[in-house]
Nucleic acid binder design. Structure first.
Lengths: 117, 117
DNA sequence: CGGACATCCGTACGTTCATACGGGTATGAC
DNA sequence: GTCATACCCGTATGAACGTACGGATGTCCG
């Protein structure tokens, strides 16, 4: 119990961590990041169609991700392309995104639908 | 864009993943898991004191974690001890919990080590 | 038994958040 | 210039969530 104190994560740290992780805790954002990890660059409209969500929702999700510095945008004419930020946290990408996908897929093998790689 | 479709994470998978990650997206639960990763076993009251949150909030957080199978409880008399589940997802523990803590700490080195409150 | 204690549960309240809608800006085509 | 497209933004609505309060359950002690 005294040990619990020293093992404590400060409330500030926890809040910041939770904020970062909460960006991965929403289906739309998660799918956007997952897609951008595979395709490198996509515009809002294509993402909206691919994920079958409204463009506003897509735009909103991308705005939050961008505000957190997880994605960058590149404007080409009237189209805005997004991609994962160069300094996207590697552990977040590698383990919270890629590994966890495997985790849930192996948990229900009867679905079986695996992507390549 | 056709590539975006095949690179897509299904809505079901994304929802399940988001649900799992959302358990780490809340300061109280995050601090509980972090503490349990260090101390092995703690009861509700001690956790509440150590984290400086109400006992109800602690109990509620533990209930959710337990419903997701992330922690187990052991009742000893009128005290209930919680610990990380034996099959706590390893990538979740190792990278989303331990590595990300390092991440945020190294991200702001000027603050250094502090837990003022 | 009766009282104190640790925890849980149902409920209610306030907040946060994702989405949809309307309007606005900028770019490219005719 | 006018029109259509692609996107962004402010606002509102509805849902989900975390916390506090009162009461209930189960447990130890004298």
């Amino acid at each position: 119990m005294a040990a619990a104190r020293s093992a404590g994560l400060s409330a500030d740290h926890a809040a910041e961590l939770a904020g970062t992780l909460s960006l991965l805790s929403e289906p739309t954002r998660l799918r956007i990041l997952y897609a951008l990890d595979h395709v490198e660059e996509l515009c809002v409209g294509d993402l909206a169609v691919a994920l079958d969500v409204g463009e506003d929702a897509t735009s909103y999700a991308l705005r939050l991700l961008r505000a957190a510095g997880l994605v960058n945008k590149r404007k080409d004419g009237r189209v805005v392309y997004y991609r994962l930020s160069d300094d996207f946290p590697e552990p977040l990408l590698e383990h919270c995104l890629r590994r966890l996908v495997d985790l849930t897929e192996t948990k229900r093998p009867q679905h079986g639908r695996r992507d390549r790689r």
